[in-house]
Every structure is written in C-alpha cells, then in structure tokens.
Design a protein around this nucleic acid. Sequence first.
DNA 1: TAACTTTTGTTAAAATTTTTTAACGCTAGG
DNA 2: CCTAGCGTTAAAAAATTTTAACAAAAGTTA
Lengths: 236, 236
Amino acid sequence: MSKILVIDDDVAVLQLLQIYLETQGFIVFTAKSGRAGLELAWEHMPNLVLLDLVMPIMDGFETYRRLRDIGIDSVIIMSHRQDERSAVKALEMGAEDYLRKPINLDILQAKIQTLFRRKNLYSGDVFSLYNDGHLHIDLDARTVMLDGAPVKLTPTEYRLLSVLMRKVGRVVTHEEIIKDVWGAGKKEGLGSLKLYIHYLRQKLEENPRKPYYVLAEWGIGYRLKEPEEVPAEQAA
Amino acid sequence: MSKILVIDDDVAVLQLLQIYLETQGFIVFTAKSGRAGLELAWEHMPNLVLLDLVMPIMDGFETYRRLRDIGIDSVIIMSHRQDERSAVKALEMGAEDYLRKPINLDILQAKIQTLFRRKNLYSGDVFSLYNDGHLHIDLDARTVMLDGAPVKLTPTEYRLLSVLMRKVGRVVTHEEIIKDVWGAGKKEGLGSLKLYIHYLRQKLEENPRKPYYVLAEWGIGYRLKEPEEVPAEQAA
DNA sequence: TAACTTTTGTTAAAATTTTTTAACGCTAGG
DNA sequence: CCTAGCGTTAAAAAATTTTAACAAAAGTTA
C-alpha cells in the first residue's frame, strides 16, 4: 500500500491527517519539522509528501528542494490563506498540487486519488497527447479535434493550450502561463490571460459557462482537466 | 558503382546519355520502350532511372507507376517543353526531379550528384530538420533561426516553408504548394504564392534579389536548396 | 445572512498583424 | 523583340491581439 509523509509543525494537523489517511488505507508517517521529515523521507521513500510551507526551523522551500534531491517528486503543498504567494512559488518550482488550510478532507482525498492515478498512467511524463473520447489534442501534429471535428485555434490560443497540456491535471499559475505564452516582460498580462481562457472555453467547452476542461483555481491559476480513462477502441 | 537506367524512345538520346554517364563512372543500361525498361529495372535494380515521359507503346506514367511497384523510387523525369503539364503531374506523383529536353549535361550531372547525396544523407526521409550552419529550421519545435537569431514567421509563411522542407532539394510544383498551404478549393492561388515566396525570402535570404535558399523553377514550382554539408561542431 | 472585497468572466472597441487582391515592372526563354 | 511567368509594391480586407470597462461569482468578514 502507498506511503504518505505529512510534514507540519501543527500537531493537531498531523494527528487529524494521520487518523484520516490511515482509515483510507495509507501507511502514514508524520514529522513536526523539515529536518525530521527529510529523515523519514530518506528512510521510507514515501509515494507522496504533504508539506506545510510555513514552518519555523527549516522553511518549507528548503525542505521541498531537499525532498526533490532525495528523489521524491510527488509533493502536495499545504498553505495558509495569507501566504498564497508561497504556494504559487512552490507550484512554479514543480510541486504537484496545493491545498489550502483549513484542510477539507474530501478535497484532499480527491487530489490524492488524482495524483496517484496520473503517476501510474503517465510515468513517462510526456504530455503531447490528450484524448478522452471527445476532445483530442496532439501537440506534435498541432491538431485539436472535438468529437471528430477539427477545432481552429489562433497561435496564442494554441500556446495557451500547450502550456496547460504540459501540466495536465495540475495547476499552472497565472504568472507561469503569462511568462510562457506572452514572454517575460509583460505588464497587465492577466487581462489577456482571462480573455484567452474565455476564447479557449468558447471553442472547447460544450457549455462555456460551466467549464469542464479549462478550470480556474481561485487566486492561483488554471488547470486542464485530467482526461478520464478512455475505452481502448476509441484511444486511436 | 551506381547503376543508372535510361528509358527513352529516341536512340540518339540513349547513346548520348550512355556515353556521357559511362565517362562519369556509372554503369548504364538503356531501353527503347517502357516495357524493355521495366525488364531491365527488375533485373538490375538501378539506383536511378532517367525516364522520358513521351513514349509510344507504354506511356511514361504507366512506366513510372510500375517502377515504383518494383521498388524504385529514384526517378528523374525527362520532358519536352510542350508537355510540361506531364512533368508537373509526375512530380506530384513523387518523382525526384525533372529535366527539360534538350538535355544539358552539366545540369544532369548536378541533379544526379544532388540526388545521390540526398539519398545517402537522409535515407530515413524525415525532413524535419534543416541546418547548413546559417539557417536552422526545426519543424517539430516550430523554430527558424538565422545565424543564431530567431526568425518570426506568420502561420502561412510557416506552412509554406514546411511544404518546401518536406521535399528539400526537390522541386515542389505550384499546384502542390497551393493545395498544401491554402487548401484544395482556391482560385488564383498563384498570386498569394508568389507573395509569400517574396516574404520568405525577405526573412531568410541574405540578398532577397539573388535567392540562395528559396529557388524558383521556371514554369514548374519552387525548390528549397539542399543544405550543404555542415561541420560537425556546428551540427548541434 | 448581508455587505464587502477580490478575483474571474464577458463584452466591445481599438490596435495590430496577417492575408488577400490587384496592378505593374522585370527577366528568362523562345 | 515578344511573351509568359516571376518579383515587387501598395492598398484593402480579414483575422488576431490588446486594452479597457464592467458584470458575475467566489471568498471573506461581521
């Protein structure tokens, strides 16, 4: 069964998560500091780490960096509302996902499930194809099809979709998107981003008012929906 | 040494080519009809066939098709001025190159050399990269660099360049380019084609008046220059 | 819950870029 | 020297992108 390491300086959080995750069938390790967490990580090589960013002794970023050095790349960041900037930074550094405190256990479980499924599906991590039976994207061929019909995207729309594809199922922060689509030096890029998200939804979503593919992450960025498993005969 | 088969109903042409090509060190077979040519082709599997399109018994197209069936894909079409349309058709069917009669032996030799070099260089036939030290094109990455500096192409310019790339060093007919860049139904596409050739030259050529890369083939189409061998340390 | 704040979504218009169209000069080939 | 086809230029048309303003929704606070 999968191993999960929780690192947080709040003992109440550690206890809550340990009890909950164990009822879900995970093997759980907890650590009250970054240093202790790294030791446990080194020893047990957990499949997932839940990491609180605000910790006194060794700060969350340093801990995150060292976890990656150890070879652990599945990290979900936990952050308080007030240091959302830190979460953004961690996501841009490559964290898998983020979770706002106070922790909603249903959301947590959903994210864990998604993450494990993704890791198994695409361990190669080359996201140049998307296919869920309705929407079919091929970045190499530069084609987008919706229920068999080709969708025409403008160059900017295409770049935006590519950036989201690169991290399918994971949040991509506003800043990261803006940097990758419009380039580094860009004032007021959020306006354009919102507009192009709108355009993409008009072209890709069945009901643009209730987006299914292109999802907003409030205050953070956007996420392209993880494709559902697709029947084998449709996969081609 | 390489084998060349010449198929033409004009005995004078056969003799001329046989003598000339043998002085160039090739093993030469000649045939006065398509049927005889196919037999020789089957028997000797020549590396190259020079095929006259206008022949009485079996017409050039039929011969060309059967040569391909045999597995011979290096065919240079020879055509008289008056049936240029046929040459265009043969090129669109995949012939390697064409030669106008009366035959200029210098041009013939140049084309043969180019063709053999190309066959050896890119036997895989995947032309997604172009690099001669100055101009660097990567179709997959969708980037074009000139002496290290990125060149910005519009979508149409890019499609045009891609079509020429697909057949580097070979002629691509006007009609084929227009079909691939602008789509099938298109009236007066030649005007746009000429203009976009102009744009490409402005962006790629050192001296757009004396094009080096994007070459016109009078009455037939365009050709992207075969890249010269590039020093190994520049190849990356 | 109600009021408020922040962020996201939508719309419209202006600005820019790309593409088309058309006219005409130039050049190669006959 | 004539003609067909190529190259160039300019202007109009269409598409794409930016900008700005405002509406709607989500999150926060009392």
